[in-house]
């Protein structure tokens, strides 16, 4: 572990401890206003975890919506309630056995999920410069089969399903028609296939290879440009994180405005209906 990683770990654990302490304060504090303010710590440390996972958009949205919106609303509601600090709080009173049982069930379910889920290590896509004239950058990344939006990316295949994606952000003009990526997969089953590049707007070209039903085992993959003489094979270069460079905001935008437009709009209509309903309920009755 390098010194840089140690620094990152220290920061991470500082946020984690702060989050747990804040959550405890929310639960145990006798003063409900203090509980509400302690929620600030919890929400912030959750946002910091998003930042650690490079989910930049979710990080900002978490702070913007939860801290700037929902927390303020909660505090407003508490502060506007008459003599809120004199109320006997439920966390002092009787329901301790029920609460204990509920907590036990939730903890059991969480531990079960943590123990049984196949955690995939997130690996960086390999970026290589192909030694052709002029040099071409290729980024090789393995997506999980369920991560079709490209938001999630994992380095390990689950149950032999996955999508290998080769991104070429700056393919030179003469190669644009008919260029193909030669993907080589070595492991229990060896695959060598030429996959043609397809244009994807301003982001260059992309070749996709869908994999399914591969036998379990360890696989290695490498990429080259097919048909270039001499055949250019990617050398080992220090990996650069391609996705982090571009950020996830664009991907989320494309997903929300493309594939998931209908659910997105349905949810917003639902929210609008809730808003109108709230305004109707809160409105004063005007007698004619």
């Amino acid at each position: 572990m390098s010194w840089g990683e140690i620094v990152l770990n220290v920061v991470f654990y500082a946020f984690a401890v702060a989050g747990i302490a804040g959550a405890l304060a929310v639960a145990v504090s006798k003063n409900i206003v203090r509980s509400a303010f302690a929620l600030l710590t919890v929400l912030f440390s959750a946002a910091s975890f998003y930042a650690f996972m490079r989910a930049d958009f979710i990080f900002a949205a978490q702070i913007l919506i939860y801290v700037g919106g929902i927390l303020v609303l909660i505090i407003f509601a508490i502060m506007l309630t008459h003599r809120i600090t004199n109320v006997r709080l439920s966390n002092e009173s009787a329901h301790s056995w029920g609460a204990f049982f509920a907590c036990f069930c939730v903890a059991f379910a969480l531990i079960l999920i943590v123990a049984t889920y196949r955690w995939s290590r997130v690996e960086k896509p390999m970026v290589a410069v192909v030694a052709s004239q002029p040099p071409v950058r290729l980024a090789l990344a393995m997506y999980q089969a369920d991560g079709t939006t490209g938001v999630t990316r994992g380095g390990r295949m689950i149950d032999g399903h996955g999508v290998l994606v080769v991104d070429a952000p700056d393919l030179p003009g003469r190669m644009r028609t008919g260029a193909a990526a030669r993907i080589r997969i070595e492991g229990p089953q060896t695959i060598l296939r030429d996959v043609p590049f397809e244009p994807r707007g301003p982001e260059g070209h992309r070749a996709r290879l869908e994999l399914s039903g591969l036998p379990a085992g360890k696989y290695r993959w490498s990429v080259a440009l097919a048909g270039e003489e001499p055949e250019a094979i990617t050398p080992e270069v220090p990996a650069v994180d391609f996705v982090a460079e571009r950020g996830l905001t664009k991907a989320i935008g494309w997903a929300l405005m493309g594939r998931y437009l209908l659910p997105f709009e349905a949810v917003s209509v639902l929210l609008l209906a809730a808003l109108i309903g709230a305004a109707f309920l809160a409105r004063k009755e005007v007698k004619a």
Partner: peptide
């Protein structure tokens, strides 16, 4: 890459501090 979103979000947290001071 989320510059303006970050600025709007993080400067919005001052509201919580203001409420804290007031209460």
């Amino acid at each position: 890459n989320i510059g303006i979103l970050y600025i709007l979000a993080i400067s919005g947290t001052a509201v919580v501090g203001i409420l804290m001071a007031g209460w």
